[in-house]
Amino acid sequence: MSGTISPEDIIATVTQATEDLFSTMLNLPLEKLEPHTATSEPPGTDGVVALVGIGGSWTGSGRIACDKQAACKLAGALLMSSYPEVDEEVLDAMAEVANMIIGNVKTNFETQLGPLGLSVPTVVFGRNYHTRSAGVQNWMVIPFRTGEDHIEIRFCLMPSQTSQSRIERLRPQVVA
């Protein structure tokens, strides 16, 4: 099976998956901001980033980033609890948020692209760190606002060059 995925497809699919999560399990308001493309990695970040890799005939990566206050609010909404600080439960909740959003994007694209695999999520929390996904040249950046908080979802997907080494290269890397 082969197909193509346009930037509009990515924006629509990521938006739908995010809206589904916010309306079912988070019950938080969600406003989509202006999507754009980015050819470089995001600058040094403070806060929480959750990354999920996609493998198969197409490979890619999904990245959900927000500051620590937003992460605590998302985790609190998901787990119906209150988190004043980022802890293990907040990180686990952010991993699951990424898993559900990127997992549903993956499932949606499988109808066009054939079977795809999903990595277990990786979550990073810290100050002034950089993440880098090797081989990614173009990210679709889809920002959202929930209340006063901002969430940024980055997504890339490209045809695989079929070698296992390429899939290995797409594993998220963290540079302190």
């Binding site: 589904d20 079912t24 898993n99 559900m100 997992g103 549903n104 499932t107 079977p115 999903l118």
Partner: peptide, 26 residues
């Protein structure tokens, strides 16, 4: 599960799963 591919869902049902709920769920 988040896994929504037809093949996996059918496989689970054929193996005897009593049902399937896709994440995110209410």
């Amino acid at each position: 599960t988040t896994e929504g591919s037809q093949a996996k869902v059918l496989q689970a049902l054929e193996l005897g799963a009593a049902g399937y709920v896709r994440k995110p769920f209410t």
